[in-house]
Amino acid sequence: MEQKIMIVEDDPKIAEHLKQALEKYGFEVSVVLQFHNVLQEFQIMNPQLVLLDINLPSYDGFYWCRQIRKESVCPVIFISARTGEMDQVMALENGGDDFVTKPFSTEVVIAKVKSQLRRAYGEYAAVQSENILEENGLKLFPERLTMQFATEEVQLTKKETDILAYLMERYPKVAGREGLLHKLWDDEAFVDENTLNVNITRVRKKLQIFGIEDAIETVRGVGYLLKVTWDSGDGR
């Protein structure tokens, strides 16, 4: 499976240069063009790593890194012309994993990308102590924000992972609505009634990618029940 890299850089020449260099190493690369909607682009692509400039139209890279961190723990490498120590400190404090200053060496960027990917997903990842939840063939990897069924793997957001983890931990009991709200949001009193429903629907759609239908049953007035006695319909 090709690892996906998302580039958020408003200089088209630099973005294209990075794209071509990464593609030579077998990465699938997406370049963001709509800088007012970086988070939506991230949600669509679900990349394994983000290369993120600081100086961007609308909101800066620090803002977008914080938004990404609400969805994912994937590595974020800042690439910026800013060379001050405070900028590098802010990059790390806002959720970044590394920092590259412009002008940069392409080889250094590639090396940093590979290093972060190894640490997050590869040979240096702490897979031995990884928490894995499994029910009837469905595996959830909370630290990686992914779920697996048969040979297929699907990327999840942080909220989707938390929902599925809670459902699997409570199985075969009903996962109470209040418990879910508390797990996802510290103060559920300020969460809109429809917000949880929207997130549950997103998890259902992710499960449908595996051919799993009706995997989450709504128990009216109580909460939600994970149904693991499914038939994927394709013999798996």
Rank of each mutant, 00 (worst) to 15 (best):
I5S: 01
G61C: 04
V29Q: 08
W64A: 04
T157P: 05
V32F: 02
S232G: 04
P172M: 11
K139C: 09
G211N: 02
V73R: 13
T157S: 11
N131Y: 12
Y224E: 01
A125R: 12
Y171A: 12
E193S: 14
V219P: 06
G223M: 01
T161S: 14
R202D: 05
M86F: 14
P103K: 09
A126S: 14
G61R: 01
T229A: 15
Q155M: 12
F27Q: 07
A189F: 10
I79D: 01
R144H: 11
W185L: 04
Q20H: 13
T106E: 15
L226H: 00
G221R: 09
V191F: 07
G122Y: 06
V89M: 15
P75H: 07
Q20Y: 10
E188W: 15
P12R: 13
M90I: 15
N194V: 09
L164Q: 02
E130K: 08
G96C: 05
K205P: 00
I5H: 00
Y124I: 03
E213Y: 07
L133K: 04
I7K: 00
Q34Y: 09
E107A: 11
I79G: 01
Q155Y: 07
L49H: 03
Q208M: 12
P75C: 12
G223V: 02
L56N: 05
F42A: 03
N194I: 14
G84L: 10
A215S: 05
R119M: 10
I44V: 15
G211D: 00
G233F: 00
D60F: 02
L133Q: 04
G26H: 09
R69M: 11
K159A: 11
F42L: 10
T161V: 03
R204G: 02
R82G: 04
L167Y: 08
V127R: 09
W185R: 05
K114S: 11
A111R: 13
I7F: 02
V31W: 02
L156G: 03
L18A: 05
K102H: 05
E143P: 03
T101E: 14
T201R: 13
I68S: 01
V76A: 06
E107H: 13
K114N: 14
V198I: 15
R177K: 15
I44M: 10
Y224P: 01
C74P: 01
T101N: 12
E93D: 07
V203A: 02
P103C: 06
D60P: 03
P172F: 11
K13G: 09
Y121L: 12
E130A: 13
E41Y: 10
L167S: 09
N46C: 14
V219G: 06
L56P: 00
S232P: 05
I132H: 06
T218W: 06
F62H: 13
